Structure formats: structure tokens, C-alpha cells
Simulated scan of single mutants.
Amino acid sequence: MKPGAGQELLIEQLAAGYGKVQVLWDVSLRAAPGEFVAVIGANGAGKTTTLRAVSGVVRPSAGRILLGGRDITRASPTRIVASGLGHVPEGRELFPLMTVRENLELGAAMRPEARAQATQTLAHVYSLFPRLEERAGQLAGTLSGGEQQMVAVGRALMARPSVLVVDEPSLGLSPRMTQTVFEALKAVNAEGVTVVLVEQNVALSLRLADRAYVLENGQVVREGSGAALLADPVVREAYLAL
């Protein structure tokens, strides 16, 4: 795939919610080009809403979001994908009656440069997840949960993103499948793609992260390197039961 250098993702004083229900207040975070950033917090803290705002699914009520220095705060999801952002949503959101390959190929549909290089990118996705090549003609709805998560990650990679935001990739997966998915995310990051990860496995996330943020009640309450937060006694007590 050999994507270009990752872009910076910058979120400044973001507020967002659903209708009259506000979920985020004044959220600011930064993922520098090529960084691996983890966002942790309890259920309902606003992690998923943050990623949905970044990808244009939720419209912010205040603040701004910059992707590679360009303001995407109120851009459409299609334009945001075309600008270089890939989103692996919580729950995968695959098309169950389409094959694995068809689901993957949809990921390249919204970027002309991705369509032009779809064959090479698909080969790269298969190198990350060999099982998907074995299952290429199988309906996505008949796959195991782990295999479906591989498809969701692979579909986002088919757009050749420079920034990849990933929401709860290990949810419902076995430890072995979790390891496979995380190894793929590490490999993608090593190629230069900026990765922003929301994940329930706090220890694993912080071990991988260059930078990490803790969200509580829609606000950032702690930030630092992954190693620093992993050693933080407050984080360890609240999220690692240590």
C-alpha cells in the first residue's frame, strides 16, 4: 500500500452531541503525523462521539477539527474520507449480504487515487489479514466476529488513509483475534499512517500509544505519553484495577 506520511489530526475545544443531549464539552486532542494515539475512558465518556465527529457522522456544535491543517469541522463524511481519513466504526457496519471482497472494494470507492490503486491496496490488506483472502468470496455476514473486524479494518485501509481512527476493535473478540487486529494496526502505523484508537483494553492501548488521553463525562481529564498514563496511579486504579 505504501501510503504517504500520516497527516496531523487536531481537535480544538470540540462540543458535540445528539439533538439536545450534549456529550462532549471542550475536547481538545492532537495526533501528530505518524503517531499512535489512544483515547481511553469509561462507557459513556464520549469516546465514540469524538470519533464520529471527526468522521462527519456527528456535527459539532462548537470547536473545530483540522486534518492536515485543513478545516473539516463541517465537511461531509464523503469529503472527509476523500481528504485522507479512514474510520473503523464500533460494530463494524459491514454489508452482510455482500462478499468479503465486495465489502473491501467499497472502501476505495470515494477516493479516485484509492480506486486507481485498489488492486495493490487489496493485496496489502490480504498480506495483513491472510484469512480475508481465503474468505474473499464468502458473505461477510457468515464470518466470525474476529473475521468481520478484519474486514472493517481492511475496508478503511482500502481508501489509503493518512489518518485512521478505530473504535473498539477488540470488542467481542478472543485474545488471539485481538492480537491479530492490533498487530495489523501496529504495522499500518509503522508505515506512516497516523492512528487514533478508542479501545476498552486500556493496558494494551497504552503500551502501543505514543500519546494518550483520558475522557470523563465528555471532557479530557488527563493526557500524556502512553507509558506515563500506564504508570499513573489514578489511571491504574480507575481503568486497570491495580
Rank of each mutant, 00 (worst) to 15 (best):
E199Y: 02
Q219L: 05
Q120A: 12
G91Y: 07
L106R: 09
D210Q: 07
L104E: 04
T142S: 15
L197G: 03
P89H: 01
L206R: 09
N217A: 14
E113V: 06
S174C: 03
D210N: 09
Q120P: 00
F182Y: 04
R176L: 15
L164T: 01
G172S: 08
L128Y: 09
L94R: 08
R135M: 11
A184L: 01
A116G: 13
E105F: 13
Q148P: 14
L164F: 02
M158K: 03
M177R: 06
V88A: 03
S170H: 03
Q219I: 02
A118W: 07
G218M: 02
R131G: 05
R160E: 10
P89K: 00
L171E: 00
V195P: 10
V193D: 00
V88M: 00
Y213M: 13
S170D: 01
G146R: 05
Y126F: 13
Q179V: 10
L173K: 06
R101P: 02
G137K: 11
R131W: 12
A109M: 11
A109K: 07
V165K: 08
L128D: 14
L143W: 07
E105C: 14
A209M: 10
R111P: 00
L204N: 10
R101I: 11
P96Q: 11
A108D: 11
V100G: 08
L104Y: 03
K186T: 13
T178S: 15
A152L: 06
